[in-house]
Every structure is written in C-alpha cells, then in structure tokens.
Design a protein around this nucleic acid. Structure first.
Length: 749
RNA sequence: GCACGCAUAGCUCAGCCGGUAGAGCGCUGCAUUCACAUUGCAGAGGUCUCUGGUUCAAGUCCAGAUGCGUGCACCA
C-alpha cells in the first residue's frame, strides 16, 4: 500500500514537473522569437504599460504576482489586437527598505554597515542586488510575464543616476530646493530622517506625568518651604515624555486662560536643569488637554518646534540621533529613552516636582520599515518646495482615468494639502546628493549666500572662488528612493536625452518618449498612492508637461484571513512560486484574476488560494480534454465562414453564446475588469461548450466538427491573455504553425 | 476630528446602466467501461446589516443608523 501511494505521488510529481518544463520551453520559445519586444519603428499603434518596479528586498509576493499577471494579460490582449505593445519592466533600489533587509543579513554574518565602511558595504550591496535580481527574474519567467526585458531598468543604474542628477539640478536652478535645520521625523534604528508618509502609529498604554514648574520671582525667591500656596507659585504641565524636559525652553498657555494669566511674561524654573524659561500665550495650545499649559520642547516635537520658532526660543536636544540621551541630561546621558524616562521621573520626584501620574493611552509613531519609535528632532536636510508642483498636478489630474474613480478625489485632497518634501536620507544605498562643498570655506556643509558649493555630478574641476583651492567634499546624504521612482514614467523612456559626455543633448526627445508617453496603463497597490503615484503625476507634469498615464488602476490588497497584513516575519505569507509549483502557472494566474476587481481588498490564505488554483487546474485539464476530443476527428482546417454556414439549432446556439462571450470578455478587458472577463470564459468553456454543446454533438459528430473546431479556436484566443501557456500548447495541438501570440483577437459579431 | 471604502450562501468573494440572487471551496444524493474521476447530473443552503425615501419594481439609486476596515490630521 505504502509503495503504491509513493508511486502515485511520484507519478503525480513527474507529471507536474513535465508540465513545468513544458512551460519553461514555451516561455523560452516566445522570448527567443522576440515576441515580447516593443518596436518603436513599427507602423502599428503603440500601447504602453509600465510595470511598477518591485522593491529590491526579497521574493516577490502575491500582490506583485497579481499586479504583474494583470499587466501581462492586458499586454497580450493588446498585442492580439494589433498594437505595438511596450510592457516595460524594472526594479526599484528601495533605499531605506533595502538597507534594512541587507543590514539584517550582514548582522547574521557578524558584520555591520560601520564595520565594513561605505565603499566595501556598497560593493557587497551590489552583489546582493544581483542575487535578488535572479529571484525576481525566476518568478517573472514562471509567471509568463511578456515584458520587454531588453528595456529593463534598475532605478540605481548609471543612466538613472544621471537622470536623477538632472532632476535635482533642474529644481536647484528653479529655486525650488532648500537645505536647512528643520524638525524631521527621525528613525534612530534606520539612522535617517523619514517622512510622515513612512510612519505608522501604535496604540500604547503609557503614563501622563504632571510636572510642577516653579515660577521664578524677580524680587523675592518664593519657596514652597516658606509655606506659600503651591497653586500660586507653580505652573503644572502634563507630559508623556518627561525625559525631554531637559530640552524645554518655554511654557505656553492658551490666550486669556483664567488660571494662568498672572504668569504670562514671567519665567518658570526648569525642574531638571534649573534654567529659566519664559511663560507665554499661544493659541495652538489646547486649553482642554492636561492642565491647559504646554511645555515647549522645540527640539523634540513638531508643534513645539513651530511655537518655539515663532517665539524665538532656543532649540535644544536631549536625545541624539541614535535615540539616546546626550550631555544635556548630565548624569543621565547615554541612556535609552525608556531608561531615561524612568530615571527622570525619579529625579523629578526627588525634586518634589512630580505632582501626579495618570494612565494614558495614545498612538506612538513608529517607523513603518523597522517598527522603531520615531524621534522627532532637528536635522540638516534637503527639501523641495512642492506647492508649484502640486498646483500643476491639480490642474491636470482630471485627465487621468482612475480605477476606482474615487481615487481622483483622494489624491486631489492630498495635493491640496501638500507639504514640502524632505528628499534627503542619511543612508548609503541611494543616489548621492550631487552637491559639493568647499571644506576649507564651508566646513559645516551649509547652503546659503556666501557659501561655496557646487551642484555637480562628479567632483568639480574648478577652484573654490573664495580660497582659490580645490577642496571639494560631496554631500554625505542620498536621495529618498521616491525621488528617483517618481521619475519612473519618463526615465524609463530615456529622459533626459544625453549625449556621449552625459550632458543633455538638446530639446529633441527620445523616440520612446514620443511614442509611448504618456503611458496607457499603470497599476499599483493603494498603499503607495501618495509616496509614488502622486509624485509621478507631479514630476511628469513638471518635467514633461504631460500626465504620466492615461489609465491608473489601483488593485486591492490581498490580506490574510485576520485582515492584517501578509508578512514574512509572521510566517503567514503565501508565495506565488509555491502555488505555481503545485498547480501550474496558468491556474495561479486565473486564481489571481479572481481577486483583480479594482480597489477591492480581499482576505485569503494558502488554503483558499490552493482551493481556487486547484479548480482552475481542473479547468485547464477540461480544456485539454476538449482539445483531444476535437483533434481526434480533425481532418482539415475550417474557416470561420464555413463554420458559420450551419443552420443546426445547436450550432446556432453555441455560436451565439460564443459571440456573447466575445463581446463580454472584450468589454470587460477594456474596462480593466479581468475578474469578470475570466469568469465569463470559465462559464462559457466549461458549462456551455463542454457540458452542453459537446455532449449534444456526440450524436452528430461529423456534422458538428466544423463548429467544434471553430469554437475551440476562438476560445483559445480569448483565453490566451489569461492562460498563456496552456493555450499555446493546445494551439499547436490544433495544428497551427504559428504561435498563438501572433494570432488576432476574435472580432466582435 | 476629517475623508474614503465595505456589510450578499458555512467560508472567501462576484453581481450594483433597478426587473424578486451567482462562482469557487465545503455539504447531500445519484451516475460513471463515454474526450475528461483533474468527471457528469441533481440538490440543500441567502427576509442580499437595519430604518426610511424614490419607483409599477431596489442587494442594485437616495438619506439616515449600526458594525467593520483604510487613509489623513491630532495625540503635551
């Protein structure tokens, strides 16, 4: 029994393996024939689809597979309709996310970024990039993606480095760039500034500390020891972060607050440092929260920063960029936040400055990449003024067709409240900021009047105009990864046109830009609608004066049954490669299309994916058997007009059903509703053609043969965009000499 | 707080230019030397969250309620 089962299993595995090998063969055949290539010189009408470059971090997941399967179906459909199709693939270097992944791998080898140093680290990073690339290409191949690999782009490749330089230089010349010390969200673990868009919030139960600040009197020192009423000489402030008290430089209260009006203009004593800090009014304070008085820590809170700036308060830091306390905290310096908080409260208690502690639940910002608590602090960063870009985007956003439609409003709302974009990151994996400072004249690497700097791709060859020497040092920071991927729609098509020396070669555009831009179709997950989609819209309009894409499709998120997120670390991830090994590529693709309704999130699991994939595997087998059945009696080729001569009611019925199906499938693909198109085909082929028509045809086998062949031929064409391998295989079995990729889409009757 | 989305069979989801509901999996029964057990046929299972409105007619349109989710803002 055991031996029998083993044999059966092995046989099953062999069969599977045969199938996978066959797919590989077919894919190599297509590629070798150049079927995936776009042809800018073609007389055909162009149709362009832009692959969102997956992040260079690891295996492609289900969401990618769905996205790419959708792109591929559309590309194949448009090719059959006679278009010159460009499906352009690529990969994003994904700065911060790549560093996180890669550094974790180094850690396992006992290495680190800083042990290796910038140069060696980068060498290894490029090697790791090659490994990830292999994995990506493996998945793309096995999914049957018909992208033009000869045009593949990596967002960190040399040509794109030049493009990013031109992007920066252009902003610089237009006066839209500035660098300076501003409050930013800082991730101590990643060691870089991040944007609000890159943060998540975590509900945490913490404590709210009520801290007494003694009012300093100009004439007499009021002391609690002298029996004065504490209400009169003390202002109480609520804080969740007592460790930042060291960096307090003021106390603000809501204007005309009854409790505090007598203190306005006076000074309070910082209970930890003894510094005298001003008490003033500001309407940004919420009179309802805590005690109605707010301690102002401009160095560690965005709101406090604004208030502090407006009141000319000093900006102090108690916590450094590694997330530890600094010298300002005196004997507490070098501690992690949690420990510092504990020690600080002990100190406050010892100083009799802690009035009470309440339980307090609030959301703490964490880094979306590494989940570390984000520390707002002041740092020298580069920014782009976004208002003019957003304004232009708002004027033209209506020219883009969004699926679902309401994303236009979502993006419009965001653009209307645009903030300046912090484009610098303190990382190594990314486009280095092309700014050079004369370290003799400008050692602080500042930007401003009288500061000797150069914007240059390579080290400047000229001397510093102030000191007459050449002591140039490049900015240490790199660009936010979205600064390069925001240009994806135009850099992939060869923007800017460069001459051999790498300079812009005049106004003439590349033929690719002329022909394929704006893109006909772009697709993405909704979670990067601001980070990426909004940026592409703004940047394309800014640099090309055109919208980047005509149809913008947001697919839903595939989630586990809990509704949370798929994640490698939680171990609930489902891998497209595994599904494909079990059920074959076409079945997995069909499964993915059932989830392809625009903007609809779905819950799924390995089990559910397997169930569906199994069904579509069976569907494929059904079609294979239909083909065997029909090929057995096939004598000569049947033309469409021959097949349509029959007046038998069964023939008329199935031909009518075929026409309906052709109409519906075409309509549904045109409106990007692949889940409906595949459902139509499934129902027609299995439940109408096979279950009804073929069964009936058995009693009039020879007479029905032309119709059988004709309907099968059309079915294979209609199904090819979705199940490319099986349809190619059966197409050959039907005796066709050419690839099914070269046939035309069935005409609508 | 603001915005958006979702609530349909045991589960996961379609359907939404209005005409009393569909798929897959699961479940029940029957068939099976037939191109196909990777099958066929038959069936059970839903007052389409609730309330009101428009209409001859409403999961389908409108308003409100409830629940869930997502995004943004805030979070001393």
């Amino acid at each position: 029994m055991r031996g029998f089962l083993l044999r059966v299993t092995l046989k099953h595995m062999d069969k599977n393996q045969d199938q996978l090998n066959k797919e590989k063969e077919i894919y190599e055949f297509w590629e070798s024939q150049g079927f995936f290539r776009a042809d800018p010189n073609s007389s055909k009408k162009p149709y362009s689809l832009l692959m969102p470059p997956p992040n260079l971090t690891g295996d492609l997941h289900l969401g990618h597979a769905m996205q790419h399967a959708i792109l591929d179906a559309l590309a194949r459909y448009k090719r059959m309709q006679g278009y010159d199709v460009l499906l352009l693939p690529g990969v994003d270097h994904a700065g911060i996310q790549f560093e996180g992944t890669f550094n974790k791998i180094l850690e396992k080898e006992g290495l680190s970024k800083h042990k290796l140093g910038r140069e060696d680290w980068l060498k290894r990073a490029w090697k790791f990039k090659d490994e990830v690339y292999k994995s990506f290409h493996n998945t793309w191949t096995v999914l049957g993606i018909s992208a033009d690999w000869s045009r593949e782009v990596f967002t960190f490749e040399p040509r794109i480095q030049k493009a990013v330089f031109h992007e920066f230089k252009s902003f610089w010349e237009q006066g839209l760039l500035y660098k300076g010390a501003y409050i930013v969200q800082w991730c101590p673990k990643c060691g870089t500034a991040i944007e609000d868009l890159e943060m998540e919030y975590l509900e945490k139960e913490e404590e709210l500390y009520f801290v007494r600040y003694v009012i300093a009197s100009e004439s007499e020192a009021i002391s609690k020891d002298q029996g004065g009423s504490p209400r009169d000489d003390v202002i109480v402030v609520a804080t969740a972060r007592p460790e930042t008290i060291y960096a307090d430089t003021g106390i603000a209260v809501y204007p005309n607050h009854a409790k505090y009006s007598e203190f306005i203009g006076k000074k309070a004593v910082n209970p930890l440092t003894g510094a005298l800090i001003p008490i003033f009014e500001d309407k940004r304070v919420d009179p309802e929260f805590g005690t109605g008085a707010l301690k102002i820590t401009p160095g560690h809170d965005p709101l406090d920063y604004q208030i502090g700036k407006d009141h000319n308060l000093p900006m102090l830091h108690a916590i450094d960029k590694t997330g530890r306390t600094n010298q300002l905290t005196q004997d507490l310096s070098g501690l992690k936040i949690e420990e510092a908080r504990l020690k600080t409260t002990e100190k406050l208690e010892a100083n009799d400055a802690l009035e009470k502690v309440e339980n307090y639940t609030h959301s703490v910002p964490i880094c979306e990449r590494c989940k570390t608590t984000v520390e707002p602090l002041i740092s020298e960063e580069w920014f782009i003024k976004m208002e003019p870009l957003a304004k232009k985007a708002l004027e033209h956003i209506g020219e883009i067709n969004f699926y679902p439609e309401n994303y236009q409003k979502i993006l419009t709302d965001w653009l209307e409240n645009i903030h300046d974009w912090c484009i610098s990151r303190s990382l190594w994996w990314g486009h280095r900021i092309p700014v050079w400072y004369c370290i003799k004249c400008n050692p602080g690497k500042l930007v401003g009047k009288d500061k000797e700097i150069m914007v240059s791709f390579e080290e400047p060859t000229r001397e510093c105009t102030s000191c007459g020497k050449k002591h140039w040092a490049q900015d240490e920071q790199v660009f936010d990864t979205w600064f390069s991927s925001g240009m994806w729609p135009i850099t992939t098509l060869g923007w800017p046109r460069l001459d051999e020396a790498g300079s812009e070669g005049g106004p003439e555009e590349t033929r690719e830009i002329k022909r394929y831009f704006p893109w006909d179709f772009e697709i993405t997950a909704p979670e990067i609608k601001y980070l990426w989609i909004a940026r592409m819209i703004m940047l394309s309009l800014w640099f090309k004066n055109e919208i980047p894409f005509k149809h913008m499709f947001f697919h839903g998120m595939l989630r586990p049954l809990t509704g949370a997120k798929f994640s490698k670390s939680l171990g609930n991830a489902v891998y497209p490669n595994e599904l494909r090994d079990a059920w074959g590529t076409d079945a997995v693709r069909m499964t993915l299309y059932t989830y392809a309704a625009p903007g609809r999130d779905s819950r799924t699991s390995k089990q559910l994916m397997d169930d569906r994939a199994k069904n579509f595997r069976n569907f494929g087998n059904k079609l294979r058997n239909i083909t065997h059945f029909i090929v057995d009696l096939k004598t000569s080729d049947v033309t469409a007009s021959e097949a349509r001569q029959s007046q038998h009611e069964d023939d008329l019925w199935i031909l009518d059903e075929l026409d309906k199906t052709t109409r519906e499938v075409t309509k549904n693909i045109e409106s990007f509703q692949l889940h409906l198109a595949t459902e139509e085909l499934y129902d027609f082929i299995w439940h109408k053609f096979a279950d009804v028509y073929i069964e009936k045809s058995k009693s009039r086998r020879t007479a029905a043969q032309p119709t059988l062949e004709y309907v099968l031929d059309s079915s294979l064409r209609l199904l090819h965009p979705f199940m490319p391998f099986l349809t190619e295989e059966l197409w050959q079995k039907l005796g066709n000499k050419e690839s099914i990729m070269l046939t035309s889409w069935p005409a609508i009757k």
